[in-house]
């Protein structure tokens, strides 16, 4: 036993080393920088101050923070609502490999290029507008891009595979006879899905939620490329603070806020999940 435990430390050492170098140290640097004074041309001066955190309460920043939260919640909700039936259909399909391939193939293309493809689709001379114009459905180009909706659309597109995959794997393991049992016992189709299927695949839903919410919350390229003035997100502020305004402590403080909010969100999802699960037992 004891020998095994010692071996365990050895086996997990590479992982520990990896996380220390590429996760703990950078996070520590960010924490430290956020409490330092900003250097004149970027960088920091080694002097403790809470100024970065005070600057965060600038109404303009708070507005962006609020918007980021809102866009993330809406985009995550849409992603999950689309991914659920999709994962269900895949799990029940006889051609699972085919559908999986369709979902994975886009990953072979750089996400930046895929976003540019969306520009080609949505822009005023883009695919959709050209099509609608040529069909005579509209007379003037619609403004489909450089606004909030475009950001949400593309965020959903980019992140939906990360929701479909965990949902698919849990639904695939689901015993569909349980749905028949629910119907047999008096549940309508809808009730069978809500009372039996969804609780049974809860772990998949939680994974999908975490996998989509966190990257969307920290999104940077999508709002930059297809968003307008009203679609600036925290990710964009951080980049601006690093490259343009050269306020590294403020950038660090924002990064820290993203990390903290995401972590809190994940903890909240997991804890509430466990509580609900416990409720199912107690009687």
């Amino acid at each position: 036993m004891k020998r095994e435990r010692q071996l365990g430390i050895i086996y997990s050492a590479p992982m520990g080393l990896w996380l220390t170098i590429f996760f703990l140290i950078p996070i520590s640097i960010i924490v430290i920088y956020s409490f330092l004074k900003k250097g004149l041309y970027g960088g920091v001066e080694w002097q403790f101050t809470l100024k970065a955190y005070q600057e965060m309460f600038n109404p303009a920043f708070l507005k962006v923070l609020w918007r980021t939260l809102w866009v993330s919640v809406v985009a995550t909700a849409i992603t999950l609502l689309l991914a659920l039936p999709c994962g269900y259909a895949m799990a029940r399909s006889r051609h699972q490999i085919f559908w999986l391939a369709l979902i994975i193939v886009p990953f072979w293309t750089n996400s930046l290029i895929r976003i540019y493809a969306w520009i080609a689709i949505l822009s005023s001379e883009g695919f959709i507008n050209e099509l609608l114009l040529s069909l005579g459905i509209i007379k003037e180009s619609l403004s489909l891009i450089y606004n909030q909706q475009a950001v949400i659309t593309v965020l959903v597109y980019i992140n939906i595979p990360f929701a479909i995959l965990p949902l698919f794997t849990t639904i695939d393991k689901f015993d569909f006879q349980l749905l028949e049992a629910a119907r047999d016992l008096g549940a309508t189709k809808r009730k069978a899905i809500f009372k039996v299927l969804l609780p049974s695949i809860r772990s998949g839903i939680i994974t999908a939620l975490i996998f989509t919410f966190i990257p969307i919350f920290g999104a940077y390229t999508t709002p930059l490329l297809v968003g307008g003035k009203d679609s600036y997100m925290i990710g964009n502020i951080i980049v601006d603070q690093v490259t343009k305004t050269r306020n590294w402590p403020l950038a660090s403080a924002f990064s820290l806020i993203i990390t903290l909010l995401s972590t809190l969100g994940v903890i909240w999802i997991l804890v509430s999940g466990m509580q609900d699960k416990a409720k199912g037992v107690v009687k």
Binding site: D175, Q177, L178, E180, A181, D184, L185, S200
Partner: peptide
């Protein structure tokens, strides 16, 4: 099925795993 005065005991029982 939900409207029939008939209930089934399934071969694999089909008990709901998330419920007590």
């Amino acid at each position: 099925p939900e409207k029939r005065p008939v209930n089934t005991v399934f071969q694999s029982y089909a008990l709901f795993p998330h419920l007590s």
